[in-house]
Simulated assay, not measured.
Amino acid sequence: MRRLLLLVLAALVAAFGAFVVGMRRKSPILQDRLRQFSKRVMTPAVLPTAGTAGQGNGVVHHRGRTSGREYATPVTPVPITGGFLIALPYTSRVDWARNILAAGEATIVHDGTSHRVVDPAVVSYREVAELLPRSARIGARVFSMDEFLRVRAAG
């Protein structure tokens, strides 16, 4: 029994190590699978409470750049003076980020409050590291996240 437990533990450690390496190297295969899992499983599970008071995550409402359709995507916005930062672990090529960049605006619901945001820009970790909480800096370093979406509060 103990040998089986050690084997399972070793397999979990190896899987986590492979995950970290894949994320750090921006493996297209891993990132695509994670995005699909997130869309199909995590988004429906998280979206009902995302953005409500007391939640760490939020929701970004944006319009499709080709379809014109309205979308809601759970994100983890970090409030900064005059706006928000949102980590882009799958790079800025994800649809929701491309939609916001194309439109130049979106709405973020965070901690129970809706915020219209404008002037989206992809910025590097180096540019915003000092604005991030310690936990976000650790996550960014572990997973080699170099891109963040910076948005400014509208008017």
Results as ranks from 00 to 15, higher is better:
28 P>Y: 07
105 E>S: 15
114 S>Y: 09
48 P>L: 08
15 A>P: 08
60 V>H: 05
89 P>Q: 02
77 P>T: 06
35 R>N: 09
135 S>D: 15
43 T>R: 12
117 V>L: 07
70 E>S: 12
39 K>F: 11
7 L>M: 11
78 V>K: 05
23 M>D: 04
100 I>F: 03
62 H>Y: 01
134 R>D: 08
1 M>K: 14
107 T>L: 10
124 S>N: 05
60 V>C: 01
34 L>V: 07
153 A>K: 13
33 R>T: 14
97 A>V: 09
102 A>V: 01
109 V>A: 09
98 R>N: 02
4 L>W: 15
59 V>C: 05
77 P>V: 02
128 V>Q: 09
144 S>W: 12
113 T>C: 11
128 V>E: 06
84 F>D: 01
125 Y>A: 11
32 D>Y: 13
17 G>W: 09
41 V>Y: 11
102 A>Y: 00
77 P>F: 00
99 N>I: 06
30 L>A: 03
141 R>Y: 05
139 G>I: 06
136 A>Y: 10
145 M>P: 03
135 S>F: 12
112 G>L: 02
89 P>C: 00
72 A>C: 07
134 R>A: 13
101 L>Q: 01
71 Y>R: 13
51 G>C: 06
7 L>F: 13
142 V>Y: 08
78 V>G: 06
137 R>K: 14
103 A>L: 01
28 P>M: 06
58 G>M: 00
82 G>V: 01
84 F>R: 03
142 V>W: 01
48 P>G: 05
102 A>P: 02
68 G>Q: 12
15 A>E: 06
107 T>C: 05
77 P>A: 09
52 T>Y: 07
22 G>N: 00
139 G>W: 10
3 R>S: 13
120 P>L: 02
32 D>R: 15
35 R>S: 08
68 G>V: 07
43 T>F: 08
78 V>R: 04
68 G>W: 01
115 H>P: 04
86 I>K: 03
46 V>F: 03
38 S>F: 14
110 H>A: 09
50 A>W: 08
67 S>T: 15
20 V>T: 06
1 M>S: 13
5 L>F: 08
100 I>D: 00
102 A>G: 01
134 R>T: 14
27 S>Y: 03
80 I>P: 06
71 Y>C: 10
129 A>N: 05
23 M>W: 04
108 I>N: 02
83 G>F: 01
97 A>S: 14
57 N>R: 03
13 V>D: 06
25 R>G: 10
147 E>T: 02
57 N>T: 03
28 P>Q: 10
151 V>E: 06
98 R>H: 02
137 R>T: 15
122 V>G: 00
72 A>T: 12
